[in-house]
């Protein structure tokens, strides 16, 4: 069988979802933002909910997320996406509303909006990209920069005595009664991408149940911020980021998952 016989329309098993626009993603080569964008759009395509989805983009590298997703989208002020989502969901309870936020947006400047939105139990989906650094502004320390990790504002490594500790906001959020599903995933290997997609799908499907916030943290590389190749960055992520931010479900169907158990 030659290649011409294989490369036929009817033999396609994987292709770029048409819910991503034709525009080239503005992210650095190998960045997990692109992968996560794709997963969200694949989930929306598979669920057939494009006409009922409203997405909210943050400030940070993914500020232009609305350029790449073929859905109605809103650009929020830095950290305010959960409040914007609240305004929409309260007035359009039948729509699917999601925020897409980085670590600086969600866990530093927007901590209040994040926690109160989760605590009120808004029936929305929050996708939280954690790459431990401020990518867009050039690699400064983030609330999730792990101890010892270098950034342009922690050039000798994060010194917790001076700079404080990384914020495990996902663990914090899982404790709130307003959250229904809380999960931490990553997108550094094909297997982890498949799992992350399942979590994102669940987080969207949960909106039908009206039981509160579904929150998916996606640990991702920022290879240019970390000053590594994409392949090195994904290895470093597995060995270092995931040691501090262990992947797995923290809360499922409103019930906390026992520590140490992963799904």
């Amino acid at each position: 069988m030659n290649l011409e016989e294989i490369i036929r329309e009817e033999n396609i098993v994987y292709r770029r979802t048409p819910l991503l626009t034709d525009k080239a993603l503005s992210y650095c080569p190998g960045c997990g933002h692109g992968t996560t964008h794709r997963l969200i759009m694949e989930v929306i395509e598979e669920m057939g909910i494009q006409s009922d989805v409203i997405g909210i983009a943050p400030v940070g590298c993914s500020v232009l997320a609305y350029e790449f997703m073929d859905i109605d989208m809103i650009e929020a002020a830095h950290g305010r996406a959960p409040a914007v989502a609240t305004g929409i969901k309260r007035t359009w309870p039948g729509k699917y509303v999601f925020t897409y936020q980085g670590d600086g947006d969600l866990a530093a400047i927007g901590t209040s909006e994040t926690i109160h939105c989760c605590n009120r139990g808004e029936n929305i989906t929050i996708i939280f990209i954690n790459n431990g650094i401020y990518g867009m502004t050039g690699g400064q320390m983030a609330p999730t920069t792990i101890p010892g990790m270098k950034s342009s504002t922690s050039p000798f490594g994060r010194d917790t005595a001076m700079m404080g500790y990384p914020l495990k906001i996902t663990e914090l959020i899982a404790q709130l009664p307003g959250t229904y599903y809380v999960s931490r995933q990553s997108v550094h290997t094909p297997a982890s991408v498949r799992k992350a997609k399942k979590a994102i799908r669940k987080a969207f499907e949960n909106q039908k149940l009206n039981k509160g916030v579904s929150f998916v943290e996606v640990v991702s590389n920022c290879n240019s911020g970390w000053k590594m190749t994409p392949v090195q960055a994904n290895k470093w992520l597995e060995e270092n980021m995931l040691a501090y931010f262990p992947p797995g479900d923290l809360k499922v169907d409103g019930q906390l998952v026992e520590q140490g158990k992963t799904s």
Binding site: M1, E5, I6, I7, R8, N11, I12, V13, Y14, R15, R16, T17, L20, A24, L25, Y27, P29, G30, C31, G32, H33, G34, T35, R38, T189, P190, V193, R194
Partner: peptide
């Protein structure tokens, strides 16, 4: 695997 890991959705995969 290649299609799934590609951040830019640049790969179409065929199987037969």
């Amino acid at each position: 695997n290649c299609g799934i890991i590609c951040p830019d959705g640049a790969i179409t995969v065929y199987r037969v």
